[in-house]
Design a protein around this nucleic acid. Structure first.
Lengths: 122, 122
DNA sequence: GCTGGCGTTCCCGTCGGGGGCAATGTTTAC
DNA sequence: GTAAACATTGCCCCCGACGGGAACGCCAGC
């Protein structure tokens, strides 16, 4: 299939697909006329990228999953490198959660303080 | 004081200070030679920006606080606009916290699933 | 044979927060 | 007097993940 079809099937844009290719995440065989020619395996890769991006992965962090798929595995997270990224991401998210909790508390305290100074002691 | 002194006192860079000025957050009187000439009130503004940036405020979100200081208030959060930003930020942080909790759970589930498929059932 | 809708490459813009350079002027210390 | 350390404006660069649009090629239907 051509790029437009892959894009609409996957629910993305041709721009995004060319960007993935530029980043080395998606290879694209060409027809004689220069048009990109994709198959089901490419669709699988694009879906993997999308799934991971939706849970906050940077594009670069999807690379081990894409590589795993391209190595012939059914699932992108069947390889050690991908699993290592899961672990790292969980640690990142947990650290960020802890930090955000502190920030929320600070904000609440600042708000309460400012309101008190304004005499809004309700 | 000149820009370099303000920068080192506040623990930032001359570049950042010029950027704040460009964004309209920091006014800078000039001497006859064209050099910026700051005083304690400017330091106060820079510190206010820094404090808010550290808890995740976008530069633009610090504007009401800066305006409040420039209006003569002792504290940047003494004005209604600044307090409104507190409220909005708290809501944003809370929404993000909820989302991150979901993401963390998804990641944990994915990791557990991948490990199980690999037979790492410990 | 022409129009419309695909495709191609290329470059610019986003947004925040600067970095890094050049070319030039000023102040300060010795 | 001169060198070092500051200051000025202005310009282009970066990150991420594309979006917009130009200028052009290709192909199917009428």
């Amino acid at each position: 299939m051509r790029i437009g079809e892959l894009a609409s099937t996957a629910g993305t844009t041709t721009k995004a697909l060319r960007y993935y290719e530029e980043r080395g995440l998606l290879d694209a065989p060409r027809r004689t006329n220069g048009y990109r020619d994709y198959d089901e395996s490419h669709l699988r890769v694009v879906r993997e990228i999308q799934t991971l991006r939706e849970i906050g992965f940077a594009l670069e962090d999807t690379r081990p999953f894409v590589d795993c798929l391209r190595a012939g595995y059914e699932e992108g997270d069947s390889c050690p490198d991908a699993i290592a990224v899961y672990r790292r991401k969980i640690a990142e998210v947990e650290a960020y959660l802890a930090q955000l909790n502190v920030v929320r508390d600070e904000l609440r305290a600042k708000l309460a303080d400012a309101r008190m100074r304004r005499g809004e002691g309700n």
